[in-house]
Design a protein around this nucleic acid. Structure first.
Lengths: 204, 204, 204, 204
DNA sequence: GATGAATGAGGATTCATTCAT
DNA sequence: TATGAATGAATCCTCATTCAT
């Protein structure tokens, strides 16, 4: 079923329709397995139009990544309380992250599961997104424990923190049972990362 | 250039050569982008022989996953000091994990970056490996903080811990500069996860 | 050399060209031995276009069978004088049959020689054509000799009659010398089947 | 399951095993679709041995055809009462034909359904068998109605008769319900061909 | 007499991409 | 703005056939 169907739609709208369709298809199939045919059909347009607006499969995928990455970054940044103490900033960032990924599962799948395949030319795009997020985390961590943002140990903490968050988001996205809410995930991760397991006191 | 070249090799040996070559190629290209031609050439045999022994591209990839997953699981399990206190067990497991992934970067890449593409039939294989590792972590965490291994909070900690470890391993595998040693990664993660960032005292 | 050559042909026309080419190639080689490459070239188009319109080799072959079977059935039915006495109806049907098979030797070859290979999935299609013809013959025979159309003996006569007709058509199609005309074949078969050999009086 | 399994079997025996297996497989699949692997396995030997004894797939198929054709020809010839009046001779031949084909369905399938595919190099072999049978029939017919065995009309009758017999044999081989016995088929065909439909009086 | 190991060649099928309108 | 028609280039996979033992 075409998403829209109408004719003579302005370019900006059509492009958004195409990106929406592409993100959905790429999320379901992955970059290589997705076919331009399926994407065009999902967008409700003919293939030549997709090429006219988005040039190539690779460009299309890159556009998807960029859009989703920007949206995710913005969501996190907006959720951070600027000027607050590091712990509070971190809390806000995590909350924003988990809520955004839960609200946009296809975008998250594309970024986290499908765009990682190394060897593809768009890997750089994703790496750059991740680098931005890791740097942001490193800044908070450095502020919190008084280290230099570039110190290897701080970097290691930042990678650990980001990896932990990604893993939890992935868990929430694929867990079969009742999905934990973003607030709970953020709380768990705060406890885990901030206080440490040695002081964690489970619910019961 | 063929990896081995010799002729009339017994089947078991040839199969190992093929798996070695396949892991290398899959790590470089990903499942879809890798071609059976390239794999056969890398293994130093003709394509039909690969099909004769390993049936299909999918079966071949699954065999690679299984082999690497088993090796990784075994490495972690062997590195754990059975009967020791949880903290010590965790330390051993992390050390084993980081040392194995550093020693087998191709295997790690296949498992972590290439086999994750959702929608592919082998996804289950990787999910199962990860589930095993997460369960193991959950057991340690439950023992450490006195919760039930099945409690949602414990599960969340376990996912966080595993995600953090994966992220660090990925960092070590792709970082351009001097690669942090496994021992250092394990130490960072122990501090991060066990004591918490609030008590972390960076090197400087 | 492409059969048609022109470009930008409407789909319906192209499909007919493809079927024509396919029937010719299948008649010459048989289903398994025919290659899609050869068919595409004979149709004057590229292989992907054949797949786009006809899906698969098997579907293509089935489409050929169905087209030729329908044409043959229609030719026979149209040649039968409805309402006439059985003998006259039979005469018309045989004449129509022999004239159609002589006029479309490739179609006849595909139906009679190439589509019979048991074990192939399209066998059902041909069996159904044959069943239709045998049933029609059984009806005439029953009317002629006063038996029930479902009686085993009538069925046996019908199978015998149809087999005899097929054999004669095949003979006419492959005989090296001067090919007997349809009218002569029909006459011979009428004598053979209607009066019986015991009363047949050969030309000389 | 290997048919025999034993080792060091004398060549003649092994060859027979191979032909038996080949006829069964060719009957089920047809010439092109049958694979030497399947045949070798069905024969319980390794592929190289099949090649050592029978040279090539085509030679193997030709050998099958020749063996089955000879057996069929012999069965028919043995069933004919030499010196008897034509009608009696024909009766004997038909009986022999139907009983042999019913007793060797795989051989019949190979000859009648699988070896007909035109365009294959072994077509000549089958054509020659058929020619022998048609000639034999022509002789009887000529004797019965006083024509020259080479007259076109006599040839036509012979082709009709043989085609009718083949069709009945095929019907008996594939009919789902209770299979008509050879004696009944022969009787039906005698009535049909000898007395003609105009004088046929069905069972009821 | 018998086989495990190995391959050259070819066939079906798919896909990203482009004209011509 | 929008598309029906068309293709070059791969890719997976199979098979008849042969060595070396």
């Amino acid at each position: 079923m075409p998403a829209a169907g109408g004719k003579r739609v302005p370019r900006a709208v059509r492009e958004r329709q195409m990106l929406d369709a592409a993100v959905a298809v790429f999320a379901r199939r992955g970059f290589r397995a997705a076919s331009m045919d399926e994407i065009a059909e999902a967008a409700g347009v003919s293939k030549p139009l997709v090429y006219l607006y988005l040039n190539s499969k690779e460009d299309l995928f890159t556009a998807c990544i960029r859009r989703e990455a920007d949206a995710l970054t913005a969501a996190v940044r907006d959720a951070v309380e600027a000027g607050a103490p590091p712990e509070r900033q971190l809390w806000g960032g995590l909350l924003g992250f988990f809520e955004h990924t839960a609200a946009h599962p296809d975008g998250w799948t594309v970024l986290y599961s499908q765009a990682r395949t190394v060897g593809e030319p768009f890997a750089a795009e994703v790496a750059s997104l991740r680098a931005r997020i890791v740097d942001f985390a490193a800044g908070l961590i450095a502020a919190a424990c008084g280290g230099a943002p570039g110190a290897p140990e701080v970097a290691a903490y930042a990678y650990a923190l980001v990896g932990a968050a990604e893993s939890l988001a992935g868990w929430a996205a694929t867990a079969p049972g009742p999905v934990p809410a973003g607030r709970e995930l953020a709380a768990s991760l705060m406890t885990f990362a901030w206080s440490g397991l040695s002081r964690a006191v489970p619910a019961q």
